[in-house]
Design a protein around this nucleic acid. Structure first.
Lengths: 245, 245
DNA sequence: GCAAAAGTGTTTAGGCTACACCCATGA
DNA sequence: TCATGGGTGTAGCCTAAACACTTTTGC
């Protein structure tokens, strides 16, 4: 950065905003919080909050996530958190200058956060993306950016396992892709592709699970050590209007 | 974000840092500025500066870029500027809490900025990436992140034309890929791939240029309207240790 | 003529798509 | 026995990699 001029130092507030996604009942859900105060009192918003003087934005994001989901600390410390981008338009908050660093997080399906959450968890709800009404501030734009980023990352990373419980079937993993992308995938080809990628998933020896009650029991897998997906698993129809950020 | 508590409002400075890349003499170069004041007086740093009270981070980045490269305003307004990520570790600046939004910019080869620049341009130099010594603050990390992001984006976007002058040969375009990736590409296959992607490049009718003095004159092309590259132009050897952000 | 770079053609291997088909289970 | 979902096999298309070859320039 340039040299310092203390007079140029304008007072900015720095916050984090979190788009926490999960796959539940065949639909992509995002964690929303009902605001208690103006502006936008009563409206839904992404969880988030101030960055404290001695923490980084990522630390702030994990702290807020733990407070608002009620997840235990070690789980929050380990889960995948991805910095999206920073939103800094001067009037994005009507009261003061707020610069917000947005993150996306992927979690497996879990109970409603209301149960055990300490902080603001009682005002938090999982909402199907698309059924979310107008959001406070510029959170609708942040949510849209997060959604398209997650969709793009499924193509060339092993991130999809972050949506699954510790042990999962290939049908569940495929459901993640189909839900996020909104397209159907060919089951045999998906299976081959996933198993052909070293380190994407590891078989759980001897285990099997009945999935939907009906059908043949499916083998169980764990997430493997790989993070990248070479070659990528491309969406059936190219994104077209979706710029990959 | 969460509800406001004015007492929680900590004073943060918000800056932008710019990794401005160009391809020159077969090597990837980045624009660096020699610092005049402590800390890191005399060290090289990425250009950047404070975000002003009434501008967004991107507006601040374009303003700083214009000041430090001496490029005319309309050029700066049109060029590709990409937000990388935000660096917010509490001690990244020894004096105070500074949160910095990092951008990457791609420009064609141009004269040294010293010539016409108004602001700090006389302290600016193009430096080959890799020959840059230790940088001030955490700018070495920002530069490394920017470099890997640019390399990844060449694979699935039409961004490479941003490194080229308005009219260029396919040999020059291929040199961009080879320089950024550090690998040689098969000329015939590269040509087919680029021409087969609609909107990547457009032929300039009737024009041709002698490139290196020797060899057959090459046809000239302009950048086309396309931004995405489907299917992608993958690097010969998969990146392996390079996480795509 | 020779080197160098542009441009064209061709062959081949690997990946992906699209199916057809069998297996195991609940109702 | 039927519907449902897991799992296997296979033929064809398409792409991309690899390399041979021609063309046009400067020296």
């Amino acid at each position: 950065m340039a040299d310092y001029d203390p007079r140029a130092f304008a007072p900015f507030a720095v916050t984090v905003d979190l788009a926490v996604f999960t796959v539940r009942a065949g639909a992509l859900h995002v964690l929303l919080i009902r605001r208690g105060q103006d502006p936008y009192a009563g409206a839904w918003a992404l969880p988030g909050g101030f960055v404290l003087p001695r923490e980084s934005a990522e630390q702030a994001a994990r702290r807020e996530l733990a407070e608002e989901t009620g997840l235990p600390e070690p789980v929050v410390a380990a889960l995948h958190l991805e910095q999206l981008r920073t939103y800094s338009e001067p009037d994005r908050d009507p009261r003061m200058r707020v610069v917000s660093v947005a993150f996306a997080a992927l979690v497996p399906d879990m109970p409603e956060p209301a149960a055990e959450g300490g902080g603001d968890a009682d005002r938090a709800r999982w909402t199907a993306v698309g059924e979310a009404g107008p959001l406070a501030f510029d959170h609708a734009a942040i949510l849209a950016d997060a959604r398209s980023r997650i969709g793009a990352k499924l193509e060339y990373t092993c991130l999809a396992t972050a949506f699954c419980p510790p042990e999962f079937t290939l049908g569940e993993l495929r459901a993640v892709y189909e839900t996020v992308w909104g397209t159907a995938l060919d089951r045999p080809n998906f299976r081959r592709k996933v198993l052909a990628t070293p380190g994407f998933v590891e078989a759980v020896p001897g285990a099997a699970r009945l999935t939907g009650g009906r059908g043949k029991p499916a083998a169980l897998y764990r997430a493997g050590p790989a993070t990248a997906l070479h070659p990528p698993l491309l969406r059936p129809t190219p994104p077209e209007g979706t710029p990959k950020t």
